[in-house]
Every structure is written in C-alpha cells, then in structure tokens.
Design a protein around this nucleic acid. Structure first.
Length: 495
RNA sequence: GCCCCUGUAGCUCAGCUGGUUAGAGCGGCGGCCUUUUAAGCCGCGCGGCGCGGGUUCGAGUCCCGCCGGGGGCACCA
C-alpha cells in the first residue's frame, strides 16, 4: 500500500468525522470519554457460566457488572440490544429507555460500534431465542473508538491488513482469537511439562559475540560503547551445553532465534524455539521424549492427538515412524547416498552439475528437502545425518560416516532436530576446522570457530541428548494453519 | 533476486469484448420500531477505482514503470 495522498487523507477524515463529532458531543455533555478504571467487573465467560441453561423468557435478579467492546447493535426504538465482548467471551445487553432514563438511553444509542463500555444489570434469557442477556440499568463509556471496526459479518479478510494490523484481525475474527489462545496454552503446557520433569529454565544471551549452534546466516548489530559487532543468536545450543557442563543436568530455554534468510509460509526471520538438553541421554531417548511431549501437549490443548490440516489428518500419537535418512532418500528418490560417497558421484547420480559451493552433505540435504520432506505428513523421525551437516553431533556408534542425529517432520515441515551431543573436545575442534573448509568453499552458513565452547567441552561434558523444537511450526500444525504467519501475531512483512 | 497472480467505498465484493454523472451488502447519517440477533422498514453514497506516465474522441477496464499483498522458485528451522 502506498502512502496516502493528501486527498486521501481528506477522504479518510470524512469517514471519521462522525466519530470525532460524537466524541465532542460526549465531552460537551460533561462526560469523560476516557475514564481511568471500571472496577468490580466479572469476565463475561463467568457470567455465562453462572447462567448456563437459563430457560427462554426467564428473568433473574442476579446482578452482574461487565465491560467490553460493543461489536453489534440492534435497535428497537425505545429499547435495543448490544453485543458486548471482552477477552473471555461475548454477551448480549438489553437496554430499555424506561429503565435507563431518556438521557442515558439516548447516549447509549448514540454509541458507535467499537466503543468500549461498562454495564451493570440482571441476567435474563430472551423469549424467542432464549439467549442469555443482561437487562442493564446502568452503563458507562470507558473508551471512545474513533475508527470504524471491520465488517461485523464478513470479518477482516485482507491478509495485508490482518497481519499488519493484527488488532483489527483479533477484533474481527474469532478464528484468530482462537489460534493465539491455543498458541499460548501450547507454550504453557510445554513449560509445565518440562518444569515437572525437573528441567531448569534459563535465559542465555540474545546478543552474542559469536553465533553458533545451527547452520544459518545471522543478523549483525553493533554495540556502540564497546565499539564492536554482535550477532543476534541463531540458536541457543552452545550456551545451553555450557550450562550442562556447569552441572545443570536438565536445562531448557524457550525464546526467539533470528536467522537472516528468506520469508515463506514456513520461515520467519525471528521465530520461537525451544531447546532442551538432558545429561546422560542420547538421541533415542530424546526422540521418545519429543513424541511423548507433543502428544501429551496436543491432548491437553486440543483434547486429541489428531489434527486436520487442509485435506489431511495428522496423528501425533506415539510412536512416530522412524527411518534413516539413507533409507528415506532411497525410498523417495531411488538414490542410495551410501553408494555415492563423493559430491561428484552423488551429483552424477542426481543428474545435476555439482555447484562448487555445495559439498556432498549439501547435496544430501537438498535431496532430503526436495524429495523427502514434502511427503512426510505423518510425524516421522529421519535418523542418522551426514557428519558434515552436523558439526555438533556425535558420530554414530555403529554406522560409518553419519552422526546420531534425527529431525522430526510433520505436515511436510521440519518441526524438531536433535542429536546425541558431541562431547569430545578434540573432535569438536576438528569439526570446527571442517566448517572452516566449508566457509572457504563459499558456504555462508558454516560455523565460525567458537573457542570458548571447545574449552567448555574440555572441562568435561557428560554424554547428553539435546532437542530443538520449532514452536511456531508446532502451533501451525496444532491449528491446521497453512502458513506460519497465521500463528505469528506480527509476522515479518516487507518495508 | 526471478516468475505468476493481485490492488475498486470503513469492511466484504460486483463491474461483459474500453463508452452516458462507478454499483451491492454490511457499516455510517436521518426517520420509524420496547425481547431482536447477518433484526426489520423508509430515505441519503459518504469512493473515482494502489501511485505515476502513456495509447485513445473516451480507461477500473489496454500498455509501461513503481509501490504493496499473495503464491511459486532459490535459501532455510
């Protein structure tokens, strides 16, 4: 959307003029349109719960005090109905001139959709529809709305407005309100579960002198007083493992990571990641823990482990399918990567020219993301990745050339990543050197050498299993959303 | 960065192969209506079609450029 011209500003103000005029009328009547508080109110959901099943036509003398936004109005001359909504729910108000008095009634009728009011009255159920309502005898303006709300029936559908002005989306669309409540409950349940299992929640630096823990390009920023560049973290991994070295045997962090890469239906430059580490565990234990965690949280939040997303239904009930990366690629692409152990051989098998920037591991990664990943609808663990793609994972205990690592997929999207953590400091040092070779090849996502991390490993880290779980993507699955933007309140947009 | 689609009143949309002062519903404004619920009835467009050029007697309607949005490619969790 381009900047409005002065003419458009003029037109816009015409639309808003009525509301401004009403504001002035209200002030002229000696009423403060933006008072400071409205105490003693109940959540609308509580009022509804208190009168569930009230018979049509019934009137009670049960008094309630509520507040919220007026979302609809139906006038009947000397009486009217208002739909009032707060954060917990919606209720109908019934207002009568003979009860409120002419002055208060006319001010009420003069309100606009979107205005925020407080009201008090008795519970009743309407004759015809039996709808629970409050027959109000007092009301008060709590905040004047100076801009018109979205269409009360069609809601707000324009994606640009929905994402840029999420408050309007939340006002207009129950679906969005549900999505973000579900997101919050998902995070709450995850945290509760980890806390109950004795995990310690920590906060490690977002601003890092050196980035690491994932293969991704970072955002760079500058600290003025120190006159040096910092990176926004791309992962919490290395700091969390240092805490395992420090003796926090079960540790987790839930927070934002930042990756300086493209935006898509499954990528946002900042996203919420959960990482947890458990000392003395390996990647088989973490796989079991993840499927139990996701299934348990789904059960608590959704009441089921089954979610429908588009045409498909995804069932998170454990155990999830487990297949090695080699078998998965063989199954989907008909190429046995073990038989093509060099980048030249593999590129030939794939029928492509090897990009000089891509090593063997990158080619394997390409096969995985293009040929395998889109087909992984039901929850699946892909096991045992090439070493060069996994600089922080321990070599497989029995298979040559791969590490003990899995990625979990659902709905054709990667939702989690885990390994038996590499705790041999000398091997870690060699892996960093291998990454340096990738950098020399032109790979901008390879790991920089982190001396402090290697020194921590030299201190001695127990055998450890670690997991990274993409919260946004998990919520995307739980809500059946096709795009990450549906589960991010304010997704990244251009400009 | 590339390709395709798209941008009309506050909101949701319609505008046929270019042709009289651009339409509908919701919302708004005025009037009627004391249990309605997408309340109803009567009256009033409150926008000049994302922006800038161009073609044409004449352009939301065609062409070019720019901006925003969506999808795909590439990249990635």
């Amino acid at each position: 959307m381009s900047e409005p011209t002065p003419e458009q500003q003029q037109d816009l103000s015409q639309v808003l003029e009525d509301r401004r005029e009403k504001l002035e009328r209200i002030r002229a009547a000696g009423i403060e349109p933006f008072p400071h508080e409205f105490s003693g109110r109940e959540d609308i959901a509580e009022v509804r719960a208190a009168h569930q099943g009230l018979a049509a036509g019934a009137e009670t003398d049960s008094r309630h005090r509520v507040a919220g936004r007026i979302v609809a109005r139906r006038g009947h001359g000397r009486a009217c109905f208002l739909d009032l909504r707060d954060g917990s729910g919606q209720i109908q108000l019934h207002a009568r001139e003979d009860v409120l008095g002419q002055e208060a009634y006319e001010l009420l009728v003069d309100l606009d959709l979107g205005d925020i009011v407080g009201a008090e009255g008795t519970a009743m159920a309407t004759r015809r529809g039996g709808e629970l309502s409050l027959a109000i005898d007092h009301w008060r303006l709590l905040a004047k709305s100076l801009r018109p709300p979205p269409d009360k029936f069609h809601g707000l559908e324009d994606t640009e407005t929905r994402f840029r002005r999420r408050e309007l989306d939340l006002i207009a669309n129950e679906e969005s309100r549900r999505t973000f409540r579900l997101r919050a409950r998902t995070i709450t349940e995850i945290r509760r579960r980890l806390d109950e299992q004795g995990y310690v929640e920590v906060e490690t630096p977002v601003l890092q002198p050196l980035y690491g823990g994932a293969l991704a390009r970072p955002f760079t920023t500058h600290h003025n007083a120190l006159d040096r560049d910092f990176y926004l973290r791309i992962a919490t991994e290395l700091y969390l493992k240092r805490l395992v070295v420090g003796g926090i045997d079960r540790v987790y962090e839930l927070g934002k990571d930042f990756r300086n890469e493209g935006v898509s239906h499954k990528h946002n430059p900042e996203f919420t990641m959960l990482e947890w580490y458990e000392a003395y565990a390996d990647y088989e234990k973490t796989a079991h823990d993840l499927e139990m965690l996701v299934a348990d949280v789904a059960e608590r939040v959704l009441g089921t482990t089954k979610v429908s997303r588009g045409e498909t239904e995804i069932d998170f009930a454990p155990p999830w399918r487990r297949i090695t990366l080699r078998e998965a690629i063989l199954e989907r692409a008909g190429i046995d990567i073990a038989e093509h152990p060099t980048r030249e051989a593999l590129a030939q098998a794939m029928g492509t020219e090897p990009d000089p920037k891509e090593g063997w591991g990158k080619l394997v990664d390409g096969l995985l993301s293009r040929e395998v990943e889109p087909g992984l609808i039901q929850p699946t663990f892909i096991l045992d990745y090439p070493t060069e793609l996994s600089p922080f994972a321990k070599a497989h205990r029995s298979t040559e050339g791969v590490v003990e690592r899995w990625e979990a997929f659902a709905g054709g999207v990667e939702i989690a990543n885990s390994f038996t953590e590499l705790n041999d400091p000398d091997e870690q040092r060699r892996r960093f050197e291998q990454q340096a070779a990738e950098v020399a090849r032109g790979d901008e996502e390879a790991q920089p050498f982190d001396e402090a991390f290697v020194e921590a490993l030299e201190q001695g880290m127990p055998p450890t299993g670690g997991v990274g779980l993409g919260i946004d993507r998990l919520v995307m699955m739980f809500t059946g959303s096709q795009s990450l933007r549906e589960v991010l309140l304010f997704p990244a947009m251009r400009s």
